[in-house]
């Protein structure tokens, strides 16, 4: 879902950059600096996750993890994704520097929204509800990003419904897998490292 250089027009790139800057500002302001290492680790996880391709039917897909990042980092998802995407752009030629703003926003916003909507459920729910929250987080974040990518491409002259269907359908398997992975991570962290989910550690 990295949009390449030269696909989008100037105003869209500028709008994406502005929105990402705003997200970065909020993220850096709200970031608890005691959790800096966690932000860095999740950024690193996102950075390498895109290299792991799993064949699903005829196509190869990779994990995106933006739902997990959103759930664990909240607004700090913006700086974490920004750094990882910038490095992917420079080192791997995925996306690019001019599209960095749009790409960061497309990936980070759904994660942050999931955090705001489902974060409490993932932390406080009973036995099953956090897993459901985790699944929805992974599932909806990828779906949301796919929709935002489609929206971005629509500004470059592609028919929104056509390209949206294409991008979303292509990512349905990833959405399900991300949901399962995020739910497992939530279940795992609740048992082993509740603090990572922002839960108060019971001692």
């Amino acid at each position: 879902m990295h949009i390449s250089e030269g696909v989008l027009g100037g105003p869209v790139l500028a709008a994406g950059a502005a929105l990402t800057l705003a997200g970065l500002a909020v993220g850096l302001k709200k970031m608890d600096f005691d959790r800096l290492p966690q932000v860095a680790i999740m950024s690193a996880a996102f950075f390498v996750a895109s290299l792991v391709n799993v064949p699903i039917g005829p196509v190869k897909e990779h994990l995106i993890l933006n739902g997990l990042l959103g759930l664990l980092l909240g607004w700090a998802t913006f700086p974490a994704l920004f750094v990882a995407l910038a490095l992917q752009g420079v080192l791997f030629q995925f996306g690019g520097l001019t599209t960095l703003g749009v790409n960061t926003f497309n990936m980070a916003l759904p994660g942050v929204l999931c955090y705001l909507l489902l974060g409490r459920l993932a932390r406080n729910g009973g036995r099953r509800l956090p897993l459901l929250a985790g699944f929805l987080c992974g599932f909806l974040s990828v779906g949301g990003s796919a929709l935002l990518v489609a929206l971005s491409l629509a500004t470059a002259g592609e028919e929104f419904l056509v390209v949206a269907r294409l991008v979303v359908v292509a990512h349905i398997p990833v959405m399900v897998i991300e949901g399962v992975v995020t739910a497992s991570m939530v279940g795992f962290l609740r048992r082993v490292r509740p603090a990572m989910l922002g839960m108060v550690q019971q001692s």
Binding site: H2, S4, V48, S50, L51, V52, N53, V54, V59, K60, E61, H62, Q88, F92, Q93, F94, G95
Partner: peptide, 10 residues
């Protein structure tokens, strides 16, 4: 995955 980096990003 690192042994066979194959990407659908570009």
């Amino acid at each position: 995955g690192l042994a066979h980096p194959s990407l659908a990003h570009k």
